[in-house]
Each structure stands twice: as C-alpha cells, then as structure tokens.
C-alpha cells in the first residue's frame, strides 16, 4: 500500500545501520527535542534530521517533501492558534498580551510556543522519515526479533500484515464498487461515512481473518517454530558502527541542548530564561 512514506532502497551509511539501534538513536533525538520549548532548539534538531536525510542517507527531496509540507502547514495552524489564546505561563512569570477583548486575549509567549511546537513536529516528522525511508521493513522486523528479543511469531505476523497491506486497498476498492452497485450510496456526511465504515469493515475484516488463518496453516506446514532454535538467511548484524551511531545521536542531542544553553536560547530542560 502506498502510504505517505515509503522505503527508499539505496546504499548509504544510514541504510546500512542496524535497524534496532538506528531506531534507538533516532528515538533518543525525538525524546530530546520534546523537552525544549524555545523555537531554536527544535529548529536545530530539524536541521540535523534534514542533514542526515539528505546528505548522509542521500534520500532525494521528492521522497519526503510531500508529508513534510502537509503536516507542517496543518500542524502550524493548530498549535500556533491554540497556544496564542490559551498559553499557560510558568508560575510567577508575566505574559505579554498583544490584544484583548472580553475574556479573549492573544498572548505573545503563546505564539512563540506555538512556533516551537510546530518546529518540534517538523523535527519529529523529519527524523521519522529518516528511519522509514532508509529501513527495509523485513530487516526492521528481523532485527527486532534478533536484537530486541521481540517474540518471533508475532514478528513474522507483522511481516504478513505488512505484505497484505496492498491487498486490503484493492479489496476495499472492490467492496466499495460492489456496494455501490447494490444501491448503497456514499454520503459525504459524517453519519454516512460512519455507516460506510461499518458496512465496509465486516467484509474486509472477514477476508483478513480468513487469509490469516490460511497463512498460519501454511506457515505451520513449514514447521514454523517447531524447533527450539531457528537460523536466519538474512542475518541482521550489529557492528561497532551501529553503537557509534547511537552514541553519536545521544552526543548530538546533548551538544545541541548544551550549545543552545550557552547561546542563551534554550528554554525547557529546567532552564528558564531571564524575564
């Protein structure tokens, strides 16, 4: 199924990393960015993500520009407008009111936080794109099984589920057409969509369940999980470079936070700038 993101097959330093450790490194960056409330720190993380995506992983811009723009524009609208009106300052800190009418007021600091949150989303989306577009889904799951001790039957289940994704899209299209011929119109109202969801869900899920059962029997017929041990045709390795990447991510996050603090731009992480 074509999502907004897809794996972009290529050979680069980032592509070759072990998926589990790559995920850990990227998650570390993501968590680090969520603890900052100024606009500059997330901006730095965003630029770091973009650098890794474009320069280190050599993923072409057309591969990621669409989701980036879509989410950013919509996210910005929401975060900035909401925080402009309903920002909560830290205790004892004054707020700058730009405009006030009755109980409604627009707060400068809120707008600032809104921008910060938008940049935070930008950074998170970029880092996620970095992971998804440089990681082969099969390697990802195999690595979870081999390195992260993920239950292997469930892991192979995820591969089955992933393999089925395009099929559900086709099935859904057929079901829609079939129901339209039955005279079931699609109404654009919320209630109409709700009814459709239910009407489509049963045939789609029934088909998914049947196919799962068949696949499970087919897998068992090949002795899936029959032996206490199993070998792997695709061995997903952990090399020193993978640990280096994880360490690099943690160091980069620390460096950005420390640097921003030195520059006096950091908010969050216990740092409260001078009023």
């Amino acid at each position: 199924m074509e999502g907004l993101l897809n794996y972009y097959a290529a050979d680069s330093f980032i592509h070759r990393l072990n998926p589990t450790l790559k995920l850990a490194g990227i998650m570390a960056l993501m968590v680090a960015v969520t603890m900052a409330f100024d606009p500059w720190t997330p901006l730095a993380f965003f630029l770091l993500g973009l650098f890794m995506l474009k320069v280190l992983a050599r993923v072409p811009v057309r591969q990621f520009i669409r989701p980036l723009l879509l989410f950013v524009v919509l996210g910005a609208l929401g975060f900035i407008s909401a925080n402009a009106f309903f920002y909560t300052p830290l205790p004892g800190r004054p707020v700058t009111i730009l405009w006030q009418a009755g109980g409604v007021r627009i707060i400068l600091e809120g707008i600032r936080v809104g921008i910060s949150l938008t940049l935070r989303m930008l950074a998170i989306v970029t880092l996620s794109i970095l992971f998804v577009s440089t990681t082969d889904p099969t390697d990802f799951v195999l690595s979870l099984i081999q390195q992260a001790r993920f239950p292997f039957r469930l892991g192979y289940g995820i591969l089955v589920a992933y393999r089925f994704l395009p099929l559900w899209r086709t099935e859904l299209e057929i079901i829609r057409a079939a129901h339209r011929i039955r005279g079931a119109g699609e109404r654009p109202t919320l209630r109409g969509r709700w009814e459709q969801l239910q009407r489509y869900a049963v045939p789609l899920l029934a088909s998914a369940i049947r196919k799962s059962e068949r696949v499970a029997i087919a897998m068992d017929s090949k002795a899936f999980g029959a032996l206490p041990q199993r070998t792997y045709y695709r061995d997903v390795h952990v090399r020193p470079m993978d640990w280096a990447f994880l360490a690099g991510c943690v160091l980069a996050a620390a460096a950005i936070v420390w640097g921003m603090a030195q520059l006096g731009l950091l908010e969050g992480y216990g740092v409260v700038p001078e009023a």
Binding site: R163, R210, R214, A218, G225, A226, Y233
Partner: peptide
C-alpha cells in the same frame, strides 16, 4: 489460495523461511 500462503516479501526470503524453521546453516 495464491494470496494466502506466503509470509515474506521477496521470493528468496519466502523459500528461505521454510529452511530457517529447520535451522539449516545459511
């Protein structure tokens, strides 16, 4: 059912699956 007896994404991985279960060397 040709759509419901595979669990891997590529041809060689699929054939390998049945061999991995037997714990054959690579």
């Amino acid at each position: 059912d040709p759509e419901a007896q595979f669990c891997m994404l590529t041809v060689e991985d699929e054939v390998a699956f049945g061999l991995e279960n037997m714990a054959l060397p690579r």
